[in-house]
Simulated assay, not measured.
Amino acid sequence: MKQTKIVASISDRRCGVDFIRQLFLAGVNVVRMNTAHATPEGIKEIIRNTRKVSKHIGILIDTKGPEVRSTGTDSPIPYKTGERVKIFGHNTEDTSHDCINVSYPNFVNDVQVGDDVLFDDGELDMKVIGKEGDSLVVEVQND
């Protein structure tokens, strides 16, 4: 008996019935759709075409989670391991090296001491070491 499931991420740009049928015949059990990269109509098309191939193919919808963005800067800001910086939820103020402002005003309330805050798709890690007023105090974990 098969113990493994094969999941294939399908784009709404390439989701034709023949393509999905080829994947199914090759052993795919689940079609995964990423809503961060597909339109609602594209998602519907993937589902329709998957069902045309087989009702036995599982459908997995990967929903886009919330993203918090830093506010604008004049140029990229380099950080070094061990530096301490403050993060504020002041979405109308620009970001500087020592003061990162983010798009979500309640950020400071929703993040806890000990949490990691990742920037640049996880390339830069900052650990929350404290809270001071309406800011988080973070320590840079990597250059």
Results as ranks from 00 to 15, higher is better:
116 D>E: 13
9 S>Q: 06
94 D>K: 12
137 V>Y: 00
10 I>A: 05
68 V>R: 06
25 L>H: 04
70 S>F: 01
21 R>H: 00
28 V>K: 02
96 S>L: 06
111 V>M: 03
97 H>S: 10
111 V>E: 01
28 V>Y: 06
128 V>W: 05
10 I>Y: 06
96 S>V: 12
14 R>Q: 08
126 M>K: 00
22 Q>K: 15
114 G>S: 10
120 D>Y: 06
42 G>W: 08
19 F>I: 12
57 I>L: 15
8 A>F: 07
104 Y>A: 01
12 D>N: 08
7 V>G: 13
46 I>H: 14
82 G>Q: 09
67 E>T: 08
49 N>L: 11
57 I>D: 05
63 T>E: 09
138 V>T: 00
51 R>T: 08
71 T>N: 11
117 V>M: 10
15 C>G: 01
11 S>L: 09
62 D>V: 14
39 T>F: 10
60 L>V: 07
119 F>K: 04
53 V>W: 10
118 L>A: 04
59 I>H: 03
1 M>F: 04
100 I>K: 09
1 M>R: 01
16 G>T: 09
19 F>R: 07
36 A>L: 05
64 K>D: 06
67 E>I: 13
22 Q>G: 11
116 D>S: 09
58 G>Y: 11
121 D>H: 10
70 S>T: 15
73 T>Q: 08
102 V>M: 07
97 H>P: 02
89 G>T: 01
129 I>Q: 01
52 K>G: 06
38 A>G: 14
103 S>R: 05
40 P>M: 10
111 V>L: 01
23 L>H: 05
11 S>T: 13
98 D>R: 10
111 V>W: 00
70 S>K: 04
92 T>S: 14
122 G>L: 06
31 V>D: 01
70 S>C: 14
98 D>V: 05
84 R>W: 02
99 C>E: 12
59 I>F: 03
58 G>P: 12
4 T>M: 13
98 D>E: 11
8 A>L: 13
74 D>P: 00
46 I>K: 13
91 N>W: 08
7 V>N: 10
26 A>M: 12
136 L>W: 02
3 Q>C: 04
142 N>H: 07
33 M>L: 15
40 P>W: 12
118 L>I: 01
134 D>P: 00
79 Y>L: 08
7 V>H: 11
7 V>W: 12
111 V>P: 00
116 D>H: 12
97 H>T: 09
9 S>F: 10
81 T>Q: 13
40 P>R: 11
136 L>C: 04
71 T>Y: 04
118 L>T: 05
46 I>V: 15
74 D>F: 01
128 V>S: 07
12 D>I: 03
15 C>L: 05
50 T>A: 15
17 V>F: 06
130 G>D: 05
34 N>W: 08
138 V>Y: 00
102 V>G: 03
26 A>Q: 13
